[in-house]
Design a protein around this nucleic acid. Structure first.
Lengths: 164, 164
DNA sequence: TGCATTATAGATAACTACTGTCTATAATGG
DNA sequence: CCATTATAGACAGTAGTTATCTATAATGCA
């Protein structure tokens, strides 16, 4: 299990766009040269980001890409979900209860009258794996394109560093 | 990006083994029937777990598998690393500094005399992605086969529940 | 208008990993 | 000696990733 290279391309491209002047379009040629990936392949990725509202694109002369929202409103999780897809990391291979009788959490067996909060039924393995995924996603949600710019000392001098 | 089904098989099989009597071998036939996967495929997974010291295996009549250590010494991370491999989730596509000049963290530029701890140089994108992976791994390390057994109310009656 | 530029969309293909089957082999107990 | 059980290797189908190439559409400029 690994993140696809496309996710890396997307994140690096966005950082570059975030550093560009507002209103300045950056073309695929510049981006692909910077990242060392073909224009053809990268443009697929950029189109996806546009379709999901991360970018704006302009065709024609002086066209190119621009962020559709400010860099601190674009989280790493946004990009990972767009490129990797939104399925969960762990799909239990067989969710029917017949086979899972041993791996399912029993729902407060027979104690309904006691007012117990009925446990949500589900595979205990999946519960752990989903918990693990949530830890990662929460972290990715806390990190934005802007936060990466802040942690770097780009153009030391005319921009304050460590703004965050 | 998703966990492979094999990881799910492995975890479920281990939970079943953990419930078996100490010294009692469980055969591949029983396990494959329970999980709904072929003996052939599951045995590959079990062999891997044996090679990595999670299981002991006995061939021949009355043979089968048994945990090699106690269930609370087998973490979810152990199993994920064995089945999914130990590579990092994010490999930066191009780590040479030439191309990365914009994405690398500068190492405490020119302030060496101040006694700053020199930042470890590296791609800022990778730093975030590695951080995210660490969050997930830490969670997986805190969850063991035993902790899953504890959270379930198996065989209510002759075993204490919530031992942990 | 016509042309160069630039993004978009579709078809295609190589490669890899995952999932799974089949067969042969080795070890063990009865 | 035989049935049982795990192991190892070869093999194949499927899906996803990583591209490439071509054609198309939109835009700005001369």
């Amino acid at each position: 299990m690994q993140f696809s290279k496309s996710t890396g391309y997307a994140l690096h491209a966005l950082i570059h766009l975030a550093r560009a002047e507002r209103g300045q379009n950056v073309g695929i040629k510049e981006l692909s040269g910077l990242l060392g990936v073909s224009e053809s392949y990268l443009s697929k990725i950029m189109s996806k980001l546009r379709q999901d509202g991360i970018l704006k694109a302009v065709t024609g002369v002086n066209g190119g890409y621009e962020l559709a929202r400010s860099a601190d409103q674009i989280t790493f999780l946004d990009i990972v979900e767009i490129i990797e897809g939104r399925q969960q990391l762990y799909d239990c291979f067989n969710m029917d209860e017949e086979r899972h009788q041993l791996f399912f959490e029993a729902e407060s067996a027979g104690t309904e009258a006691e007012g117990f909060s009925v446990h949500s039924k589900g595979c205990l393995v999946k519960k752990v794996m989903d918990g693990a995924e949530k830890q990662m996603n929460d972290y990715l949600r806390r990190h934005t394109i802007q936060s990466v710019l802040d942690s770097a000392s780009f153009d030391c001098g005319h921009e304050e560093t460590n703004k965050k």
